[in-house]
Write a protein that binds this DNA or RNA. Structure first.
Length: 879
DNA sequence: TGTGTCACG
DNA sequence: ACGTACGTGACACAT
């Protein structure tokens, strides 16, 4: 008979630990918190793997009153009440245990400790090895040769193992003496009093000498006179009571036979339902492979060339690449094929064969891919292109919120609970270990798996898009845009390093001057780039009261521009620090950063993340060309380095005027906002007039306009009193006044906001004009901050997202139009509401006409769309 | 690797 | 009583 092992888990204390170890962002479909359950599950998995028990039980506390409170009313007194966010997890936690066929138990009048102590004793007497898992150190008193106590520390899986030897080594006493220790020193967390002034050190010394509380009192006369001795004598009763309270009951009336605790198979059906309900996708996918015994077989063949036969029935095309940035990444392998059979080659030349070219170029040969933008960039380097792409799984997964931050097909497969495949990191490693695997077969197999997974999920995503009326968004907006973007990225924008160098010389000398000046004023030298050191200088060395200007952060004092500006009156030094910061930012991020990004062709090739933002905007990385300075003159000069790549060409820029407010006017149908735009008024002036009751535009002061502008921004962001107050530097009650007046004057906006939030609460998501969705799982949260955030998001996302959609439509239309008209012009950059081109001087007027009309007519709204344009030698001059 | 800061729309 | 304006990316520092 093999060794039986019993695992006993202290349910309350582990749930408690897990709750505090994990963020409260875990919620289930009903909006209830699940972080403690999730953490409990994780802990359970790791301890099960480690201990491999044959028997198991989770013990819970039954209630507040126990035999201990009868002995001592204040036992565990003074404890704060359990958070409702934790309390709501106890029932589902039991459900999870039930689904996993794990027995749980509670006993009126007794604590979980007593159940565990009793069963541990019975089991060890019956020849079991016992492991106890708890977050409570008191349990260590149960440790014996047969009973191991594991105490979970900070994290959920970080544990400390206690055997009698460990206890002996740590404290010099036996586990049994823990109760004597508590008797003398008490226990704050359980409100066990202990003897006055006796702490851990004193108590241990006494126990080393006299073994037990009783022993101490038998020999109390031997102690030399002291306050401590007096306390001991006076509080003998308390010491004995404390010991009693700390003693785990080993003979509780637990009505369970050990046999009943034998490990059982989980109830798969219940467990799957539970995981689904609680969004435990990771656990679900792990089950998936365990449940569907038959893992789908992937059949692939490594070939030297793609033959016409291979291509004839191919449905998928995949390029396996190595490198962080595809502008310089290496293609390792290509895959074509279908679910029955895939063909993998590392001979990329085969893509240029007439058969392959023909297949790639044939629109009637429909292809499914993952990331057509990246594929197009790679192919274009080989002078190839791909046509007939009917489904880009990257983009559809993005639209359906099925991408995780890895942006890989493996993440999609995981979210959809299909056969799991590896992530790039698993095959190529990361950091210093990022490398192509030693055995190339691994790459070939990985490439085939990705191609298979792409096919495997494509149908489901396609169907889901159809259901949600989002197919149009994929086929007519995102997929065509991917091609437009690939051309923009591939083209790149020319950057003159001489211009940057010139700016750099000036900046560096000014930075040095400022540094010297600041050190002189400070009286010490420090690293000005360190917020920590700067905070210490201002609020410790120089003695400014942080409470007046700043607030504490996790690492020190906040020293951001807002704080420094507040201090400017009393501390002239901060003006120089602000300037230093500004120039340092320009130097490191823009001068040095951009120079590093320039490639051999003298151009910068950014990459647009098309499948990332929550609203449908693009983002630009490596480098980010969507945040090149413009607001200060020093910063704006950076734009002088961005020029056309050919002689006699210029930079042309066109941007939408107030697109977000125009979108708001359209979707809210607010009469007043609409008419302001239809009459072509300055929108902030118009708002100022209405809200502040001013009759003529001439009477609107700059301050009025500024306030109105802030209110307009606030409206788009999902206005809050506090946010507006902070932005304007006024009191929240004044901000409230602005908001109230605004809503009174623009009732349609108020109605829109209420409606969009109401609807979001009902269906759990919001949509743009073109059905782009954003899910808002926290919209019905009980937590005020999270719910409020979701509500503001519900207001903002349709506005920001619709504006993004409109520019995408304009870009696609422009792309087609420019190809047709054969202009000497290239679209180079997109900055959310702005498009930047390079164009032959001779074609500027023609381009201007086309661009403005395509932007203004991209969609028909109930207010006009207006695009303003400009051009010049550099991006700086296109203003 | 996380935090603070700051650049843009 | 709660803690915020919406959406991003890159840099330097500190751990």
């Amino acid at each position: 008979m093999s060794q039986k092992r019993l695992l006993l888990i202290d349910g309350n204390s582990i749930a408690f630990k897990a709750y505090f170890a994990l963020p409260k962002t875990f919620t289930n479909k009903a909006g209830l918190h699940t972080n403690a359950i999730y953490g409990f599950h994780t802990m359970l998995d790791s301890v099960l793997a480690r201990v491999e028990p044959t028997h198991i039980l989770v013990a819970f506390d039954a209630g507040k009153t126990t035999f201990r409170t009868e002995m001592f009313q204040d036992y565990k007194g003074g404890r704060p009440t359990t958070d409702p966010e934790l309390r709501e997890q106890f029932l589902p936690l039991r459900e999870m245990l039930a689904a996993r066929s794990i027995r749980y138990y509670e006993l009126p009048n007794y604590e979980a400790d007593d159940i565990i102590g009793t069963l541990a004793t019975r089991a060890s007497e019956a020849g079991f090895l016992v492991t106890i898992v708890s977050g409570d150190r008191d349990m260590t008193q149960l440790a014996t040769e047969k009973i191991t106590v594991e105490i979970s520390k900070k994290g959920v899986s970080d544990i400390e193992e206690y055997t009698p030897a460990v206890v002996q080594e740590k404290m010099g006493i036996t586990p049994k003496q823990i109760i004597d220790l508590k008797g003398l020193m008490g226990d704050k967390s359980d409100n066990i009093p202990g003897v006055t002034k006796v702490g851990e050190k004193t108590a241990l010394k006494l126990l080393w000498e006299y073994q037990t509380v009783e022993g101490v009192y038998e020999h109390i006369d031997e102690l030399k006179a002291s306050k401590m001795k007096e306390n001991l004598i006076n509080e003998q009763e308390i010491a004995l009571l404390s010991k009693k309270l700390a003693t785990i009951n080993l003979t509780s009336p637990v009505e369970i036979e050990l046999d009943e605790l034998a490990m059982k198979e989980p109830d798969a059906e219940k467990l799957i339902a539970f995981y689904q309900e609680n969004n435990f996708n990771e656990f679900l996918s792990r089950m998936g492979s365990a449940v569907e015994e038959e893992v789908q077989e992937i059949s692939y063949e490594v070939v030297e060339n793609f033959s016409a036969e291979h291509l004839a029935n191919a449905e998928v095309f995949h390029l396996e690449t190595f490198g962080e940035n595809y502008h310089e990444a290496e293609v390792l392998a290509a895959v074509v094929g279908n679910k029955e059979k895939l063909f993998v080659t590392s001979n990329l030349d085969t893509l240029s064969s007439s058969e392959a070219k023909k297949w790639l170029d044939d629109r009637t040969k429909e292809k499914i891919v993952f990331d057509v933008k990246a594929i197009s960039v790679f192919l274009s380097k080989m002078d190839l292109s791909i046509k007939g792409v009917k489904h880009d799984v990257l983009l559809s997964a993005y639209l359906l919120d099925k991408l995780d931050k890895t942006q890989e097909i493996a993440g999609v497969a995981k979210k959809l609970h299909t056969s799991p495949i590896k992530f790039n990191e698993d095959v190529y490693g990361k950091g210093a270990k990022y490398a192509v695997p030693m055995f190339f077969e691994e790459v070939e197999s990985f490439a085939a798996q990705k191609a298979f997974a792409t096919l495997n999920v494509s149908e489901r995503l396609h169907e889901e898009l159809e259901e949600k009326e989002m197919l149009h968004l994929l086929l007519e907006m995102e997929m065509p845009l991917a091609i437009v973007l690939s051309e923009m990225e591939e083209k790149g924008i020319a950057v003159k390093p001489e211009v940057l160098d010139e700016l750099s010389v000036d900046l560096m000398s000014r930075i040095e001057e400022l540094k010297t000046k600041i050190y002189a004023q400070a009286g010490v030298e420090l690293n000005l780039n360190s917020p920590k050191q700067l905070g210490e200088l201002l609020f410790e060395t120089l003695g400014f009261d942080y409470k007046l200007y700043s607030k504490k952060t996790k690492t020190g004092y906040s020293t951001n521009a807002e704080v420094l500006e507040k201090m400017s009156v009393v501390a002239p030094i901060v003006d120089d620090i602000l300037t230093y910061r500004e120039l340092q930012k320009l130097q490191s991020t823009y001068i040095e950063g951009l120079k590093k990004s320039r490639r051999a062709d003298g151009k910068i090739h950014t990459r647009y993340q098309q499948a990332l933002t929550q609203t449908g905007r693009l983002s630009s990385v490596d480098p980010n060309l969507q945040n090149i300075p413009i607001r200060t003159e020093d910063g704006r000069k950076i734009r002088q380095a961005f020029v056309a790549s050919k002689e006699d060409w210029v930079i042309y820029s066109s941007d939408y005027s107030q697109i977000e407010l125009r979108v708001l006017a359209h979707i809210s149908q607010d009469e007043h906002l609409k008419s302001a735009f239809m009459e072509g008024q300055d929108i902030h002036t118009s708002t100022a007039m209405r809200v502040f009751g001013i009759s003529s535009p001439d009477e609107v002061t700059p301050l009025d306009r500024r306030n109105a502008k802030a209110v307009n921004f606030g409206v788009v962001y999902g206005i809050s009193e506090w946010g507006l107050a902070k932005n304007l530097g006024i009191e929240p009650y004044k901000a409230k006044d602005f908001i109230d007046k605004y809503f009174e004057k623009y009732p349609g906006i108020k109605q829109y906001m209420e409606e969009v939030v109401r609807e979001a609460k009902e269906v759990g998501y919001v949509e743009t004009m073109f059905h782009r969705r954003r899910n808002l799982p926290e919209i019905n949260e009980r937590n005020f901050a999270r719910r409020s955030f979701a509500e503001r998001t519900a207001i903002n996302s349709p506005i920001q997202g619709s504006a993004a959609d409109i520019l995408k439509i304009a870009m696609n239309n422009l792309h087609t139009r420019l190809a047709k008209e054969n202009l000497q012009a290239n679209l180079l950059l997109q900055v959310h509401d702005e498009l930047i081109f390079e164009v032959a001087k001779s074609d500027v007027e023609a381009l201007d006409k086309i661009v403005r009309s395509e932007m203004e007519d991209a969609v028909k709204l109930s207010v006009p769309l207006v695009a303003d344009s400009a051009w010049g030698e550099s991006w700086y001059d296109a203003k």
